[in-house]
């Protein structure tokens, strides 16, 4: 799961603080950076903001760094390579489950996965994929 998706998840878990709420804790510039990460999928070059966000959400900064290393593009690249090579992927989801199968398609929002031994296609939301085999673990 990318840092963008994880921040969105954390924000939802914390009652969905608004821009104004965040601006009270982070500075004006940091709030801009925060939304650049969360809503525009930007990988900010300065990681100084991560400890501030981690403190706000009461999570370790390592958690945010871990997600930062798992961008949506990296997942897309992994799925696309598996699609081309007809290879199996293992996707660990936010629910705690791991789905193993062949990707059939992927797009901006979801991955069509054909689980091994099952007939029906599973549509996995990309923002639900916490980790995958071959990520920078």
């Amino acid at each position: 799961m990318s840092l963008s998706d994880h921040l969105r998840y954390l924000r939802a878990l914390h009652g969905g603080p608004s821009n104004a709420d965040l601006r009270q804790v982070l500075s004006e510039e940091d709030t801009g950076l925060y939304f650049a990460i969360e809503q525009r999928y930007r990988d900010v070059s300065t990681a100084d903001i991560l400890p501030k966000i981690a403190a706000y959400y009461h999570v370790p900064v390592e958690e945010l760094q871990w997600h930062r290393a798992r961008s949506r593009k990296a997942l897309a690249l992994h799925i696309h390579a598996a699609l081309q090579d007809h290879a199996i992927v293992a996707l660990r989801l936010r629910t705690g489950e791991t789905l193993i199968g062949y990707p059939v398609w992927w797009d901006l929002a979801a991955i069509g996965l054909q689980p091994i031994g099952e007939e029906d296609l599973v549509v996995v939301q990309r923002h639900a994929v916490i980790d995958w085999e071959g990520s920078n673990s």
Binding site: L93, G112, D120, L121, V122, V123
Partner: peptide
């Protein structure tokens, strides 16, 4: 809300072709 959905699938017998 899709933001809270992890995955979904059609039940057997009503399976789309896979969004080709």
């Amino acid at each position: 809300s899709k933001l809270a959905i992890a995955y979904y699938q059609c039940e057997r017998g009503a399976r789309p072709a896979g969004g080709a």
